[in-house]
Nucleic acid binder design. Structure first.
Lengths: 155, 155
DNA sequence: CTAAAATAGTTTGAAATTCAAACTATTTTG
DNA sequence: CAAAATAGTTTGAATTTCAAACTATTTTAG
């Protein structure tokens, strides 16, 4: 297929606009889907936190607050809520008792998997009809975004 | 190029993970870049609102609150802030004096363009080395996401 | 070996953001 | 023209966030 530079420019504009708008909708839909299920007490932010804590990582509070760029105080408050609701547990690290390692309860792991499944569904529908090399290209595009973000942040 | 179904599955996982993580970073970097410029008093949420108000649309408060899914009260508060800081103006609609039409000041338009330029830069770096048909594919992927979102929201 | 410094996480108090409901002003409807 | 509907604002409460002060523990330096 052949494309003029004007057509490419239109695509760039379309893609820019779409990206600006889509994410908000994804966040919202992600939250509303999860709240239709057994997890009625979970917000999009909490989903994000559950995802960051992860299935097997035993991350510390400081690690998570660094990754999510939340102050430690804010994170403590968020963890209190999720602990009360039964999604996470705090484990005192026995090598260094200042440190709290974070883990998901079985309910938390269930939620993690439901959230992940939703994202998989989204990605699958997004790449419907794409072949292996198309998908490789999509992946490259995301790597490029990550590189762009790194460059901008470090400059 | 040939790809086994396993390799495709890996790509799907990679893309899912990347999507979950990237958006937060984009929001943050977008805000921090804009705050390095002359627009030091603007948050990511305000950027989003400025973008929605748009350059030429003269949208009403209700329209904007519907698009952004904010309550009217919240939007009024946000608009008060942006008005105080000189980015937007409210115009009473003379055909129907209950209605407020929203517009950007010249400062607001400058900010709009800076924000848009940043997104264009991001998209350009993301699609670096892609040809017309690759870009068409990216565009299709975004259309698919939009369709997915619509289906999920309406079901 | 111990006192001082550093580190991990929590608590606290204030500021900002959000929402729903009540309210004001205006227009539409019956 | 009175009642209902609509657009936007105000209000008060709930939630979220942050930075700074604080507690508990470990590391470092003399």
């Amino acid at each position: 297929m052949n494309s003029t530079s004007d057509e490419i420019k239109d695509d760039y504009n379309f893609i820019s606009e779409a990206l600006i708008d889509i994410y908000d909708q994804i966040m919202r839909i992600e939250e509303s889907e999860i709240r239709k299920s057994q997890f009625k007490d979970i917000t999009a932010k909490e989903l994000h936190l559950i995802h960051t804590i992860g299935l097997h990582d035993r991350k510390t509070t400081s690690e998570v607050s660094r990754v999510l760029k939340l102050s430690k105080g804010t994170l403590t408050a968020n963890l209190n809520n999720l602990e009360k609701k039964g999604y996470i547990i705090r484990m005192i690290n026995q090598q260094d008792r200042r440190i709290i390692n974070l883990g998901l309860t079985s309910k938390g792991r269930l939620l993690y998997r439901a959230h992940y499944a939703f994202h998989r569904q989204l990605v699958e529908s997004c790449l419907k009809g794409f072949d292996g090399s198309d998908i490789r290209k999509m992946r490259q595009a995301l790597v490029n975004v990550e590189k762009f973000i790194d460059e901008v942040s470090s400059k």
